[in-house]
Design a binder for these strands. Structure first.
Lengths: 352, 352
DNA sequence: CTGTTAGCGCTTTCAC
DNA sequence: GTGAAAGCGCTAACAG
């Protein structure tokens, strides 16, 4: 072992009195037959020298990076949890995960990340449906990089194999129906246009939830981004006249919290006059006053599915749990989109 | 270019009609003189072939991974933002960042991550002060891996070069003094023992903030982890008798929010009867009702400092901004700990 | 200015 | 069972 440097496989080989090929064999627990004696000698040498295999050399030699990439809109809230879970899943499949933030969808930043990932020769990629451009996607797919989206809608099937999406539409339907079933005489959706795909899904579901009561029920779609929180509440109150209570379904818990604060400010009682349902089930949803009825993000399930799909696309052997999971969900795919149900968590911002 | 494979430097060389050394030279913009003609030929070949340098080979050859590691308690809130910013900073220095979550300080998980980072031959590491064990730290330092902590207190100087810490103690002092200056007749700190180092800093500052009024002012340290939110409020109310208003300084905004909800529940007015100051300035602090007075986390500054310190420790040339930053802060280090001031954001959970 | 060549540390045939 | 040797793709002296 050269001074002051990490021991290499060569050092281990000479220390153990065997060839480097043999060392490699025992380290990788290859299926080739080896005498227990040799194994012992090598393992001892490894410990004695504090040998640690060099991942760069291994990967270069194997011609695969054993690395996967994840591109997120940012690292906050749900996305952070998503990254954390996914990292764990991939690790259990033997892969390293590199996470990037698209930094507010800046196309230049995104471009840079893709290039970087390609240079690292990532074996696969998962991206939020809105975090990368069509151009980048085509490039990736063209290079043959396995890719799975999560929360991506409207990707043409020819460039996308699979998107694992939360079923915001269904959740939204459920929210409306909950309002209707609990006395709301007017219902609203307070969205954020910048939510884009996710926003559209919610609108679609909101409308679907009204169903044949759409005609007879006062309702409206509000853009909180444009109107502001106060403006959104104003508008909902104006449109509903003296119909009470009203139900407001919001893009996410953050907006729900702001609306509730606005109600407090004006002395409007929640949920007596205004009922509110949020989305994301953030930590504060439970702790605010009143606590916020919301939808839980099934991060565990979603990351499991994302991982399983990517592994399959990469031709990796799935463990039993993964196979079962995949099989059970493969059935309910709509085209290349897979939808995951979300559970509503009823709290005190709605009547119950 | 071999079929179906990424072009290599050899392909580019033959395409451009030069040697691979020359290609390497122009790609790396080395300082060796090269004819413009050669450069052009190579660059054209690169484009034509869609050549992309293989990071694994580059790093193996250079004997450095160009990769840095970050170990966090988890990916939520402040930590997520921290990771995102730090990634950007390091990227601008030409380094890749791999982020890991210690997953609730599980020593086994931590061990695994360290081992993994070492196998990847990371050029340096930054870790939250509580996310890695003394043992791991010694190991890393022993191997000669540059290491900088953030929010780490009480690390012996011989194994730690530098810790870039938020000055929770000073902020806590400030919180108490604010309470005292705004009519509070009893003050409390509601902490979380599991916050450990960060918790101790707050306690220290809280006490210091009382100063010579400690004797004459009713105060107490409460452990919300043990008492629960309701219990914490009970205790504060009990201890303060009919002194009003009281001030409660909380470990973080999440706890502040819970306390506020508890007050609402009981019809206790905030801030008239109970004033509250949180910590972290989470998004919801602004949106809750009443909005929460809190301390802003200077993530931008902290990550800049962390990056600058690590770069210096790695013998990397700092840019001008980095040098200036370092110089200005080097002066105010206490031993190997550097303290960053935090700004209080006054909102409606306190009198003003 | 450009090319030759010896590695970087490990994997993987293919003989022995 | 074990080892010799040919790479993996690139960098960095060192010649020329």
């Amino acid at each position: 072992m050269r001074k002051n440097k990490q021991a290499t496989i060569i050092d281990v080989a000479s220390e153990a009195g065997v060839s480097i090929a043999t060392v490699s064999n025992v380290i990788n627990r290859r299926k080739v037959p080896m005498s227990p004696e040799t194994i012992r000698k090598v393992e001892e040498a490894v410990v004695r020298l504090g040998y640690r295999r060099n991942v760069m050399a291994t990967n270069l030699s194997r011609r695969r990076s054993n690395e996967l990439g994840l591109i997120l809109p940012h690292f906050g809230g749900y996305y952070g949890r998503f990254a954390e879970k996914l990292e764990q899943k991939f690790h259990s499949y033997g892969y390293h995960l590199s996470v990037f933030s698209a930094a507010g969808m800046d196309p230049e930043v995104e471009e840079r990340h893709i290039e970087h990932l390609l240079q690292r020769r990532v074996d696969g990629l998962v991206s939020h449906g809105l975090a990368i451009s069509v151009h980048s996607t085509q490039q990736l797919v063209g290079e043959g990089t396995p890719l799975v989206f999560f929360n991506g809608w409207g990707w043409p099937g020819d460039i996308t194999k699979v998107a694992v999406n939360l079923d915001f539409a269904k959740a939204s339907s459920q929210a409306v129906q909950y309002f209707l079933a609990h006395g709301c005489r007017a219902v609203f959706y307070a969205g954020r246009r910048k939510g884009m795909g996710a926003n559209e899904q919610r609108i679609e579901g909101f409308l679907a939830g009204l169903g044949d009561r759409a005609e007879s029920t006062v309702h409206a779609l509000l853009d909180a981004g444009e109107l502001g929180v106060a403006g959104t509440l104003d508008e909902a109150l104006r449109v509903s006249g003296d119909l009470r209570p009203i139900g407001i379904y919001t893009f996410n818990d953050a907006l729900a919290l702001e609306l509730i604060a606005e109600c407090h400010e004006r002395g409007i009682r929640v949920p007596d006059e205004v009922q509110i349902i949020g989305m994301d089930n953030e930590h504060f949803a439970k702790a605010s006053f009143p606590s916020i009825t919301s939808f839980e993000m099934p991060v565990e399930l979603q990351t499991s599915l994302v991982a399983a799909f990517l592994m399959r696309q990469m031709g990796e052997e799935l463990d039993e749990a993964g196979t079962l999971l995949l099989d059970s969900y493969l059935a309910q795919m709509k085209g290349h989109e897979l939808l995951i149900d979300m559970d509503m968590v009823v709290r005190n911002s709605t009547q119950n």
